[in-house]
Computed example of a mutant assay.
Amino acid sequence: MNVPVKRRYGKRRTNDAAELAAWRDAFLHRWDFFRDLEEFGLGTDEAVAAAFPEAWARLGGAFLDQFEQHPSRSPEPPYGLVTYGDPRNAS
């Protein structure tokens, strides 16, 4: 009798850089177009919207530093900056 093998999921190690990369589209445009945030437990647009303010406060400064230094950045300001302001200026 063949018993099915239990499926094992690899332990994914995440860090701030990986999380920042996953938030990039949402920080720019409000939406997680490629569902990069699913691995962080944010599989719906509602979950992303609920987590956005905290993630912006924590990672937005690093995102803006990268955004400002990118030579081909969009002329439009990122959604996070317009909606929540510059987290680097928060006291």
Rank of each mutant, 00 (worst) to 15 (best):
S74W: 08
E39W: 03
H70T: 06
A17L: 03
A51R: 05
D32A: 07
Y84W: 14
R35A: 09
Y9I: 04
P53I: 02
P53H: 04
A57Y: 00
T83C: 04
P71V: 05
R58Y: 02
E68F: 06
V5R: 10
A21S: 14
L42P: 00
R13W: 14
P4Q: 12
S72I: 01
E68M: 07
H70G: 08
R12M: 07
F67G: 00
A21C: 04
A57T: 08
T44Y: 11
S91C: 09
D32V: 03
L20F: 00
P75A: 11
N15T: 11
P71S: 07
L81E: 08
A57R: 10
D45N: 15
F63A: 02
F63P: 00
W23S: 02
H29K: 06
F63L: 03
K6L: 12
T44V: 07
G85E: 04
L42Q: 07
T83S: 09
E39R: 15
R13N: 10
H29P: 02
P4I: 06
A62L: 06
Q66R: 14
A21E: 12
Y79M: 05
R35V: 02
W56A: 01
N15A: 04
R35K: 13
T14F: 13
A51H: 04
A55S: 09
L20K: 02
K11E: 12
A26P: 00
A26N: 02
E39Q: 14
S74E: 13
R88T: 08
T83K: 15
D45E: 15
N2A: 13
R73G: 13
F27C: 03
L20D: 01
G41C: 07
N15G: 12
L42F: 05
A50Q: 15
F33A: 12
R24K: 09
H70S: 15
L37G: 05
P78N: 09
F67Y: 15
D25L: 05
P71A: 11
L37D: 05
A18R: 08
N89S: 15
S74N: 15
P78S: 10
N2F: 05
G80S: 08
Y9K: 08
L81S: 05
D32E: 09
D25N: 13
A22K: 03
S91N: 12
D86F: 02
P4M: 12
A50H: 12
S72W: 04
Y84C: 01
A18T: 13
M1D: 13
S72M: 08
N2D: 14
E68W: 13
G61I: 01
T83N: 01
L81T: 01
R73P: 09
D86I: 05
R24G: 03
K11T: 14
K6R: 14
D25K: 07
A90V: 14
K11W: 01
R12N: 06
A21D: 11
D45G: 12
N89T: 11
Q66D: 15
A49K: 11
A47Y: 01
M1P: 07
P78V: 03
F52Y: 15
W23G: 00
G41K: 11
P71C: 04
Y79I: 06
W23L: 01
H70C: 06
F63G: 00
T14P: 01
S74Q: 06
D32K: 02
K11S: 09
S74R: 11
F33S: 13
E68C: 10
F27I: 04
E38N: 15
A22T: 02
V5N: 09
F27E: 00
R30N: 13
K6V: 12
